[in-house]
C-alpha cells in the first residue's frame, strides 16, 4: 500500500507540476527573434491595416484584401510584406509549440492566436470570417 501511496504522491507531484505550468514558454531565443522582426515589420504593415489594404485572416495570418487602396508601384512590396509576415507567424506558432515540448500543439496555438489577433485588432481593421471581410 505504501508503494501505491508513493505512486499517488508522485502522480500528484507531476499533476501539480503540469498545472503549475500555467504560462507557456515564449522567451526562447528563436521566439524572441521572430517577435522582434514581426514588431519592426508592424510599422510597415500598420498603415495597410488602417487603409483596409491588408486584413487579418481567420487562420492567424494576414492577407491582401484590397490592393486598389495601395499605389500600383507599391503593391508588389505589400504582397512581399504579407508573405514574410505569414512565414514569420507560421514559424512563431511552430516555435511556441516546439519550445513547450509539444510540436503537435501548433494548430491549437495557431487558432488561439487567430482569435487573439482579431480580438485585439484596432477598430476599422478588416477581419476575415467565413471567406468574407468585415470591418471591425
Amino acid at each position: 500500500m505504501k508503494r501505491l501511496q508513493r505512486i499517488a504522491m508522485l502522480c500528484l507531484l507531476i499533476a501539480s507540476a503540469a498545472w503549475a505550468q500555467s504560462n507557456l514558454e515564449i522567451n526562447t531565443p528563436a521566439i524572441s527573434q521572430i517577435r522582434s522582426t514581426m514588431q519592426s515589420r508592424h510599422a510597415q504593415l500598420a498603415p495597410y491595416y488602417a487603409s483596409g489594404a491588408v486584413g487579418l485572416t481567420a487562420d492567424g495570418g494576414v492577407a491582401l484584401r484590397d490592393a486598389t487602396a495601395v499605389p500600383l508601384a507599391q503593391r508588389p512590396a505589400v504582397q512581399g510584406l504579407i508573405a514574410q509576415e505569414n512565414a514569420d507567424r507560421a514559424s512563431l506558432y511552430r516555435e511556441i509549440a516546439r519550445a513547450n515540448g509539444h510540436p503537435e500543439w501548433e494548430a491549437d496555438i495557431r487558432s488561439t492566436f487567430a482569435q487573439r489577433w482579431i480580438e485585439r485588432a484596432q477598430a476599422g481593421w478588416y477581419i476575415q470570417s467565413g471567406g468574407a471581410w468585415n470591418k471591425k
Binding site: 505550468q21 500555467s22 504560462n23 507557456l24 515564449i26 521566439i31 517577435r35 514581426m38 514588431q39 508592424h42 512563431l92 511556441i96 509539444h102 500543439w105 491549437d108 496555438i109 488561439t112 492566436f113 482569435q115 487573439r116 489577433w117 485585439r120
Partner: peptide, 19 residues
C-alpha cells in the same frame, strides 16, 4: 492543450508586436 495559458502567451506577444 492549455488554452488559457496559450491565450495569455498570445496576448503578451501581440502586445509586443503591435506595441
Amino acid at each position: 492543450f492549455p488554452a488559457a495559458a496559450a491565450e495569455k502567451a498570445a496576448d503578451r506577444i501581440i502586445d509586443g508586436v503591435w506595441q
